[in-house]
Design a protein around this nucleic acid. Structure first.
Length: 432
RNA sequence: UCCAAGGUAGCUCAAUGGUGGAGCGUCCGCCUGUUAAGCGGAGGGAUGUGGGUUCGAAUCCCACCCUUGGAGCCA
C-alpha cells in the first residue's frame, strides 16, 4: 500500500493510499462519519459510510476520539464539497495507533492566553500555530540564505559567557564549576572578533535577557541574527539591513502564502515592504514626535508609544539614526561630525511591533573604547580580548541584531511574540 | 519594580447582598454531505486562598497568591 502525506495527495487521484496522522475533528451524521485528519503537512476530510465498511472499521470510525493517532487507508478523490485541501478520502480501513481516552484538553472553541500557554505542547497542533511555525522556519532559512549567498560565513557565538556585554542587571547568572557565568545577551562582541578574521560573518542563535518585561514584544529567551562586517560604512550597514528585511519578507510572501492566508494576514501591506526604507535622524524624530503630542525631550530614549507613532506615520519600517551617545551602548561609534550622537540606527517596525533591529558602527579606536568602558563602569579585565581587536589591525566595522520572534510576529500578523516561539519563555513561565 | 484589569464547571463566560447558570467539550441516543455540523438527554462546582462585615457574601471590606495587559528596559 502506498503511504503518502496530505501535501502529496493530489498526486494520487482515484488511487488507494494510506495516510498517517491524528484526528483533528470528527463530524457524524447517522450512517456517515467525517474524520478530519491532520498529518503535519495539511488537513483532509475522510468520509466513512457504514454500508461500505466492515463492522470493525465502522466501529473504529465511530469511536475514534480527537487527537487519537491513526492510519487511514482509502481512495483519493477530488471533491468540491470537502474543506481544506480540495481532496477527500473515501475510507476503506482505519487502524487506530493510539486512542485518546477521556477529554482532549484543547477544544476547537476559543481559549484564553494562559490556558493555551499551559498547553503549548498541544496548542502547537492547531492550524494557526502550525502556520506560524512554518513561517518562522522560512524566516530562519531565508535569513541564512540571504547572508550565505552574499559571502558571509556563519560563525556561532558562545551562549555561556563571562562578561556582561551590555550591563549586568539583565543577565541570567549560572554556576560554572567554581565560577559564575552568564547566559549571553548578544553574540555581537564575538561577531566583531570573527569579522576581523573572516570579513563578513553572522550568527543566528538564542539570546537571554533577564528583563522583567511583560509585554507582547518581550521574551526572556529569543533568537537573534547578528551580522557583522569589517570595513563597512554606516550607509552600507543601513543598506544591508533594508535589503535583508525586504528579502525575507518577499520570500515568505512567495513560499508561505497559504500560511499567511490562514492567519488572515493582509499581505498587500507586506508586498510594499521593499528597500529603501525611510530614514529619520533622532533630532528630526524628536521634533516630529513632539508635533504629534509626545512629551519626549532631546536626550530621552524613544518610548514604546513613540515607536508606535513613528510606525503609524511612515507605514513602513523606519530607521531612526544618530541617537545621543549617552543613551546607547558603550561600543557605539560617535559620529565624527557630531560626537554627541552615535553612528547607530534602530529599525522600527510598523503596527506597534517595536524595535526590530538595533545596529550601527562600533568604536574602532582603542583609547576611546577604554574610556567608554570606564564611563559605563564595566570591568576592564573582562574586555581584554575585545580591546585586542582594536590593538591588532583595527578597522571600521559595523553590524546589527534582529529579533527573530518580533520579525515573525510582524510578518505573521500575530499579536504577541510568544506565539512565534515554539516554547516561549517569559518572566513567570518556563513550562512547558 | 510600578500602574490597570481579572480569577465562578475541563474551556469561554453570565449571575441588583437572597436556592450558582448558559454555550462548547465529555458520555448516551437520533440523523447519508457535515464545514468550530445539528437535535434530544445525562454527568460535571471548597465561586483563587485566608480573614472580616451581615440574618444571609460569587457579589461589600482587608491581606496574600496567581493570571493578563501596559510602563520602564530592550531585539
Amino acid at each position: 500500500m502506498t503511504v503518502t502525506t496530505i501535501e502529496e495527495i493530489h498526486k494520487y487521484p482515484d488511487q488507494t493510499v494510506t495516510l498517517r496522522g491524528w484526528l483533528y475533528n470528527k463530524r457524524e451524521s447517522g450512517k456517515l462519519v467525517f474524520l478530519i485528519l491532520r498529518d503535519g503537512t495539511g488537513f483532509i476530510q475522510c468520509v466513512a459510510f457504514k454500508k461500505d465498511l466492515p463492522e470493525e472499521v465502522w466501529d473504529a470510525a465511530k469511536s475514534v476520539t480527537q487527537e487519537s493517532s491513526l492510519m487511514i487507508t482509502g481512495s483519493v478523490r477530488k471533491e468540491e464539497r470537502a474543506p481544506y485541501c480540495g481532496y477527500e478520502m473515501g475510507v476503506q480501513n482505519i487502524e487506530i495507533v493510539s486512542k485518546v481516552e477521556g477529554e482532549y484538553p484543547i477544544s476547537l472553541k476559543e481559549h484564553g492566553a494562559d490556558f493555551l500557554l499551559e498547553h503549548r505542547h498541544l496548542w502547537l497542533r492547531t492550524p494557526s500555530q502550525m502556520a506560524v511555525m512554518r513561517i518562522r522556519a522560512e524566516v530562519m532559512a531565508a535569513s541564512r540564505d540571504f547572508f550565505n549567498e552574499r559571502g558571509f560565513v556563519n560563525v556561532d557565538a558562545p551562549i555561556i559567557t563571562a562578561n556582561a556585554c551590555e550591563g549586568t542587571t539583565n543577565l541570567f547568572q549560572i554556576d560554572y564549576f567554581e565560577d559564575q557565568a552568564y547566559l549571553s545577551q548578544t553574540g555581537q562582541l564575538y561577531m566583531e572578533a570573527a569579522a576581523l578574521a573572516l570579513g563578513k560573518v553572522y550568527c543566528l542563535g538564542p539570546a537571554f535577557r533577564a528583563e522583567k518585561s511583560k509585554t507582547r514584544k518581550h521574551l526572556t529567551e529569543f533568537w537573534m541574527i547578528e551580522p557583522e562586517v569589517a570595513f563597512l560604512t554606516f550607509e552600507e550597514n543601513l543598506a544591508m539591513q533594508e535589503e535583508y528585511v525586504s528579502y525575507v519578507i518577499q520570500r515568505v510572501l512567495k513560499t508561505r502564502a497559504a500560511e499567511l492566508n490562514l492567519l488572515e494576514r493582509d499581505t498587500s501591506k507586506l508586498a510594499d515592504i521593499t528597500a529603501p526604507f525611510p530614514k529619520i535622524s533622532y533630532d528630526d524624530a524628536v521634533k516630529l514626535l513632539q508635533e504629534k503630542g509626545s512629551e519626549i525631550q532631546w536626550g530621552d530614549d524613544l518610548g514604546a508609544p513613540d515607536e508606535t507613532l513613528l510606525g503609524e506615520h511612515f507605514q513602513k519600517p523606519v530607521f531612526v539614526h544618530r541617537f545621543p551617545s549617552a543613551i546607547k551602548a558603550f561600543y557605539m561609534k560617535p559620529d565624527p561630525d557630531r560626537p554627541e550622537v552615535a553612528l547607530g540606527a534602530d529599525l522600527i517596525a510598523p503596527d506597534g511591533y517595536g524595535e526590530l533591529i538595533g545596529g550601527g558602527q562600533r568604536i574602532d579606536d582603542y583609547d576611546l573604547l577604554v574610556q567608554r568602558i570606564q564611563e559605563h563602569d564595566l570591568p576592564m579585565e573582562a574586555f581584554g580580548w575585545y580591546l585586542d581587536l582594536r590593538k591588532y589591525g583595527s578597522v571600521p566595522h559595523g553590524g546589527f541584531g534582529l529579533g527573530i520572534e518580533r520579525f515573525v510576529a510582524w510578518i505573521s500578523g500575530v499579536e504577541h511574540v510568544r506565539e512565534t516561539s515554539p516554547f516561549p519563555r517569559t518572566i513567570y513561565r518556563i513550562q512547558p
